[in-house]
Computed example of a mutant assay.
Amino acid sequence: MPTVIAVHGDITKQKVDAIVNTANNKMRGGGGVDGAIHRAGGRAILLDCIERFPNGLATGDAGWTTAGDLPAQWIIHTVGPNYRAGQRDRSLLTSCYGRALEVADELGARSIAFPLISAGIYGWPLEDAIAAAIGTIVAADTQVEEVRVVAFDAAAYEEVRQQLSRGV
């Protein structure tokens, strides 16, 4: 089981082997975390997305690209369910975390930083988004040793920290 750490900060600044990106199905950049990662990492990420994912990526799946100018070696892209658009199957959300960890294992990554998938513009309720993240990560059979759950917002960070301390 990996060590799970709550972090209040900017995911693009995390010095880990892999950073997880909350991408959209088209895999061509977007807003929120996706936009921040593409802006900070540079054009190499978009070019790699176009090459590796010519038809995009399915909701709940994950794949990797270069990290471009970011301090990580890889970006693991995953497409979370859009709660606001009616995609409320929790197994799609937990699949994002599970698949990202599987990709991390394929790459040999030992440290990874996750944002709170689907908890931003896609509207997944925050407490459940955090519970899905932590529950999936701690139950995963993975070679990843350190997982950072990175919250940009102070309230979200506090909720991650509290859920981790309760062992949720």
Rank of each mutant, 00 (worst) to 15 (best):
P71S: 06
I76N: 05
G80Q: 07
V16M: 03
T78E: 07
K13W: 03
L93H: 04
D34R: 12
G32H: 10
R43E: 15
A104V: 08
A6M: 02
E102V: 14
S91F: 06
H8N: 13
G60E: 12
N25H: 15
R161K: 13
A58D: 15
A100N: 05
I19R: 00
R43P: 09
L126G: 03
G68H: 07
H38E: 09
I112D: 04
I137V: 14
V20N: 02
T65A: 12
T65E: 08
Y83I: 00
T66S: 06
P125F: 04
P115Y: 10
K15W: 04
G41Q: 06
S91M: 08
G42Q: 10
E51M: 12
V144F: 01
L101M: 09
A62E: 08
Y83R: 01
N21W: 00
W64G: 06
I76S: 01
Q162A: 15
A156H: 05
T142S: 13
A40E: 14
R90S: 11
R52V: 08
R90M: 09
I19H: 03
A113P: 02
I11P: 03
H8K: 11
A140K: 04
S111E: 02
D128I: 12
I76V: 15
V20C: 05
I130V: 10
T12E: 13
R88W: 01
R39T: 10
A119S: 13
A18Q: 08
G60C: 14
I134C: 00
T22P: 14
S118H: 06
P54G: 11
G42C: 11
L93V: 05
V7W: 11
V150G: 00
F114H: 02
L57D: 03
N24S: 13
A58S: 14
T59R: 11
V103C: 07
Y83M: 04
A36D: 01
A119W: 02
I75N: 00
A156R: 01
T142N: 03
F53L: 11
E127S: 13
D17F: 01
A18K: 06
G86P: 03
N25R: 15
D10N: 14
R52Q: 15
H8A: 00
A58C: 10
S91Y: 03
S165K: 15
Q162M: 13
Y97C: 05
I137Q: 00
A155F: 12
L164P: 10
G135Q: 00
F114P: 01
T136S: 07
